[in-house]
Structures are given as C-alpha cells and as structure tokens.
Write a protein that binds this DNA or RNA. Structure first.
Lengths: 202, 202
DNA sequence: GTCTATATACTGATAGAC
DNA sequence: GTCTATCAGTATATAGAC
C-alpha cells in the first residue's frame, strides 16, 4: 500500500480493485479453514492470480489476514455512535447479530474461527483480538451503565458481568450455529437474553 | 490398542503408561496450537520419544486427537447422573466450569480451540463435536424442563433457548478468559446467569 | 502487475534395523 | 517398542523474466 512514487489515478484504482478481490477471496478461505490451514494458493486461485501475484499486493500472509480484519471493521463502522442511549447501543448490537446471520454469515464465521485460533500469543492477529475484546466489552458495559442511570436496567443486573456475558453469548451461539445452521437461531436467543436485562422493550 | 496376541501383564501396563504420557503431551500441544498447527514431533519431544515412536502407539494424528477427547470425556464422567434433579444437574454444570478453570485450564483451553477449529466438516473431530453439542444441549434442556415441572424455573424462561444459551456462555466466556486470564472470572459470570434462571438457590 | 521457478522449511506417514 | 532414514506433500516467501 505504501506508495513510493506518484502514479496516475487509474493505476491506483486498478490496484485497489484487485486488493478488494483478494480480500473477498481471503474471507472465503479464512472463514472455511482459519489462518493456519488456509493457504495463499487457495486465495490466489479464487482471485484468478498466482500465489506470487497475491504477495505483490500483500507482502505476507500475516499482513493479509490483518488487512481482512481491518476491512471488516470499516464495513461495520457507523453502526455504533457515542450519541446513542444505552438501550439503543444494545439494540444496535442485537441488530448486528441479526444482520451478520442473514447477510454476511461468512464474515461472522471467519471471525468466530480466528478469535479462537488467535488465543495463542504467537498468532499474527492475537493482539488485534486482545484489544478488540477489551474495547467491545468496555463499550457494552458503558451502555448498560447509561441504561441503569435512566432506570432502564433491571434491578440486580451487574453491568460489568452482563457486558462480558453478552459478548460471550455472541461468540458461543455462533459456534453452535456453525455446527447446526438449521437448528439454531442465534439472533433470537441473543435478543431474548438481551431483553431480559432491561425493564423497557428493546 | 487392539492387541493381537496374549502378553504378560507387565507389558500392557508399560504400554498403557506410555499412552498416557503421550495423551498428556498431546493435550499440551493441541491446547496451545490446535490440531492443524500442533505437530506430532512436538508431542513426541514432550514425551521423550521420536515422532515414529508416537505413531507406534497411535496410528495417525487423527487417531491421537480422537483419543485425547475420549480420554477427556472419561475423566469428566460420573459428574452427571440421570437420577439428579434438574436444579442439581445445572449445579453440576456450574461446578464443572469452576473446576475446569481451577484444576484443568489446559484441557478447557484445548476444548475451546478444537470446538471452533472442528466447525469445518473436513476436520477429523467434526463429527465428535457435532454429536457432543446435540447431546449436551439436549441434556441441559431436559434438566431445565424437570426444574420447571417442580416449579423451580423462573416464569417466562424457555428451556430450549436457555439450554443453548447456557452452553454458548460456557464457550464464549472461555474465549474471553483465554485473552485475559486475570480479568475474567468465567465461573462467577456463568453462575450468575445460571442462577437467574431459577427461583431457588443453586 | 503478474508470471514461472525456486529456495527453504515443515509436515504426516512408512520401511526396516535393532 | 523405539529408533533412524526417508518419502511425498504442502507451505511461505523470494528472485528475476516479461
């Protein structure tokens, strides 16, 4: 990505388009096989390139998987805003689970696989997931605390514990869904638990 | 394992002891690296054998990982009995989470990693986990239904959904714990959710 | 920007000596 | 029961032609 010399606009666009093709193929590969088992050759074949061709755009496999996750985050961006009330933030989380299941199951699948794989400290995206869990759990806790301040949290609910539980539920339901895509309705179960935390309708 | 000729008792014991050594080493390797990235050479080194030596006792890597899971199940056996009441069954599940975290975190770690890895249908223990989720969710649901029959389930709790949620929580909390072993108390969060399902103390 | 060819490193599994 | 030696397969990454 780090351009070293000026180029015509057309060349950038062409390169960017190719990078998007590779990222799309990488999601397919990593979602099915994870990082270690998913191969660059497999990504290359789906893109219509050679393996060396892929490495022209992403200098290593590790850089590719990191780019995929960053790209995913950019796509999900804008769904959560600081201006939202606590209840609205949790509703946005429920909506995210629903839309993941319906519109981009493959992306969610990749996320589920990589988040377990990357628990190993040597994994190339270990740091990414470490920070991501800190961030998302903290945001969920703050949303629950805001809800508590306006009396919308059910009495006895501990915001910190409920925040960890909400995120854990997202991950755990995803795994069960991967084993039985017909028999598990992630979004419904997640919504049911989230609703149980509040005194108002989500 | 399949003995073809009679042997002295001592030889069996020696072989069985060696197999246990290998299984213990395999848990270490698979818990840290998963199935695909964990290598037989690594297992062999920890056992003090050569890679070929390991394959004398387990004819393939797939057979080894299957044996590890079976071995784990035998260890956990006896914790759940059909005679238990619904509430007692759920309490046994909470106790299992507590003892996993305290006594055998490595075993739990391996389970968490493999259960995600094996969502891929080609994975050698895919069938094992498919059947395991069916079994464990069904048992949890039946326990909740028994509790409902004696009026111990909180009104409005759906046994099927709560059963999926309980098991999902076990898996999801485990992942968060692997990223932050100091900041997450799996057992406490799990207990808190489980307690919220009942009108009596767990 | 993409290719072919290749260097280098591991992998699981087998053959056969001891 | 354990070893050494080896095979065949696959992987990432690089070098250099076009």
């Amino acid at each position: 990505m780090t351009a070293t010399a000026p180029r015509a606009r057309g060349e950038y666009a062409k390169s960017a388009a190719r990078r998007l093709q590779i990222l799309t193929a990488a999601v397919e590969v990593f979602s099915a096989s994870g990082f270690h088992r998913g191969s660059l050759r497999d990504v290359a074949e789906r893109t219509g390139l050679s393996q060396a061709g892929v490495l022209h755009h992403f200098s290593s496999k590790s850089e590719l998987v990191a780019a995929v996750l960053t790209w995913r985050d950019e796509q999900a961006e804008g769904r959560f805003h600081d201006a939202l009330s606590g209840v609205q933030w949790i509703r946005a989380l429920v909506d995210l689970v629903e839309s993941n299941q319906r519109e981009s199951p493959q992306l969610a699948e990749m996320y589920a696989l990589l988040s377990s794989e990357a628990t190993s400290p040597e994994h190339p995206v270990h740091e990414y997931f470490t920070q991501r869990y800190v961030w998302v759990v903290a945001n969920a806790r703050e949303a629950l605390e805001r809800a508590a301040q306006v009396g919308h949290l059910r009495p006895g609910v501990d915001p910190a514990s409920a925040a960890r539980t909400l995120i854990a539920l997202m991950d755990g339901l995803q795994v069960q869904w991967l084993y039985d895509r017909g028999g598990v309705d992630m979004a419904a179960d997640f919504h049911r638990y989230a609703q149980s935390l509040f005194t108002v309708d989500l």
